[in-house]
Design a protein around this nucleic acid. Structure first.
Length: 471
RNA sequence: GCGCCCUUCGUCUAUCGGUUAGGACUCAGGAUUUUCAUUCCUGCAAGAGGGGUUCGACUCCCCUAGGGCGCACCA
């Protein structure tokens, strides 16, 4: 204990569902702290609840971590596999008289709680087997409970919440080992954290109360106490519990909504942690700056508007190739999958500079680029339809003739020069003549810069689209 | 019911006793622009309430209110 070892962090989700946003943030904080300090970041799957744990959930969590870019060190630890060790610790505590057998049945305990409730008393185990002779239990099934201290207080020294004091008479004798011989969560975390050498426990504030109980086990075993940091929970946009409607989704749902992993990292980091006035924080900077001191104490709410804004920023910062890959992947995940041709992909990459300034999500980006995916005349949306009036179609015919004759190289610059000249001759504003053109080329009233789009599509394809609406 | 935690603009937050309480998102204006965006500028907007402590409180203490978490042989 005298050496200054590198910190060991862990993320310990239970595989009873996907990796949701709160878990993702907890994982991120642990990961950042480990990377910041050159420590180790471990992943432990808390699957001691055999009823509710599923392999699908394990898979979803692993996938979610990978998508978030949170790589962990060493082998993933599966808690259930360590049940033997947990049992051994419980037996050890029993042998030392620091734990005892409790033969109370489930019905008996339920009745006890109901009685306490009726009398408006605190609901907790009353220690009925604490001082009884275990021989009285005979062959009946029993659980092993910790013989917790009943006086004094237990102080959780928390890096976020400060020192939190619990009176020991508020804590009852918790179950360590169930009657089927499996360990409870309380026992398993403490044993695993100790055995894995965990030095810092960063987890949700919903565990703050548990920390006091876990501390008692740690004390009884004489193990070192980890540094605790309980981070406030994330609430829904309405301030109440985080519901699916308010963002309690699997991280992969965010991917499917078109958010980038770097956006999620920045957003989640900033939600509850700050570095002065900094808002845009790259992962590299986050690794340099992250600390426990600047974690806020109050619960935060999801704000999708801000998430969108951040995502727009990271989309604009992404390379054209990376974004093309994102769009291609997104379209391929659709049902039915949409596979882009090599030509479409090429067009996509070429158009990306104009496209990425206009999108907040990859979904928007993919939709805005749809005029690049297929050839031939466009289906017009309502706004485009409105633009292509009979008069506009007549003008379109004239422009087509001009372009066909004069735009030899079909570059954005020459196309623009020709259209500008046309507008000048007609004594019209440039916008008045580009809008019908845009409608014919893209099928929409708004798009990336028109002349760039036409250049990307090429002479033949552009003329086909224009002629389709030229009257 | 008992225990624990939290409380600055609508939202995320800065402030570590002395500030015109700052920034970001949103929203409203404006500039740039071939559309839409981007970008830039301007504006709206906050210390839950009540007591203390102090020359001076957003900041320290107490109470109230509101919200959250926990109180399982779930994790």
């Amino acid at each position: 204990m005298m050496d200054n070892k590198k910190p060991v962090l862990r993320f310990a989700p239970s595989p009873t569902g996907y990796l949701h946003i709160g878990g993702a943030r907890t994982a991120l904080f642990n990961w950042l702290y480990a990377r910041r300090t050159g420590g180790t970041f471990l992943l432990r799957i808390e699957d001691t609840d055999r009823e509710r744990s599923t392999p699908e959930a394990v898979e979803a969590i692993l996938k979610g971590m990978e998508w978030m870019g949170l790589n962990w060190d060493e082998q993933t630890v599966y808690q259930f596999a360590r049940a033997g060790r947990h049992r051994a610790v419980a037996e050890e505590l029993l042998a030392q008289g620091k734990a005892y057998k409790c033969f109370a049945t489930a019905e008996e305990l339920t009745a006890m709680r109901e009685e306490q409730k009726a009398l408006k008393l605190p609901q907790r185990y009353d220690g009925r087997w604490r001082d009884r002779d275990p021989a009285e239990g005979g062959d009946a099934p029993y659980v092993i409970r910790l013989k917790a201290r009943q006086t004094g207080e237990t102080v959780v020294r928390d890096q976020v919440m400060g020192d939190v004091t619990f009176q020991n008479d508020q804590l009852d004798d918790m179950v360590l080992l169930r009657s089927d011989g499996t360990p409870t969560y309380m026992l398993a975390v403490v044993v695993d954290d100790n055995d894995m050498g965990v030095t810092h426990v960063i987890r949700g504030a919903d565990h703050l109360n548990n920390a006091a109980r876990q501390l008692q086990i740690i004390e009884q075993m004489g193990w070192p106490v980890p540094v605790y940091a309980h981070v406030p929970l994330i609430h829904g946009a309405d301030g109440a519990k985080l519901s699916k409607r308010h963002g309690a989704l699997a991280v992969e749902a965010y991917r499917d909504m078109g958010y980038l992993p770097e956006t999620m990292r920045n957003y989640l980091l900033r939600l509850g942690w700050s570095h002065g006035d900094d808002e845009i924080i790259s992962t590299e900077q986050a690794i340099q700056w992250f600390n426990l001191e600047n974690i806020g104490k109050s619960a935060a709410r999801m704000d999708f508007k801000k998430l969108d804004n951040l995502n727009g920023h990271y989309i604009r910062e992404s390379s054209d190739h990376a974004l093309t890959a994102e769009v291609v992947a997104l379209l391929e995940r659709q049902t039915p999958p949409r596979i882009l041709s090599a030509l479409a992909r090429e067009r996509l990459t070429q158009s990306m500079p104009g496209l990425k300034e206009r999108a907040k999500t990859i979904v928007e980006l993919a939709a805005a680029a749809d005029f690049l995916y297929t050839d031939g005349p466009r289906d017009l949306d309502a706004a485009a339809e409105k633009l292509l009036t009979p008069e506009a179609r007549t003008e379109l015919a004239m422009i087509v003739t001009m372009l066909d004759k004069e735009a030899i190289d079909w570059t954005p610059a020459s196309l623009e020069a020709i259209v500008r000249e046309f507008a000048r001759l007609r004594d019209a504003k440039l916008g008045q003549v580009t809008q019908p053109l845009r409608a014919a080329i893209t099928g929409r009233a708004s798009s990336p810069p028109l002349f760039d789009a036409m250049a990307v599509l090429g002479r033949d394809e552009s003329l086909v689209r224009l002629r389709a609406f030229a009257g």
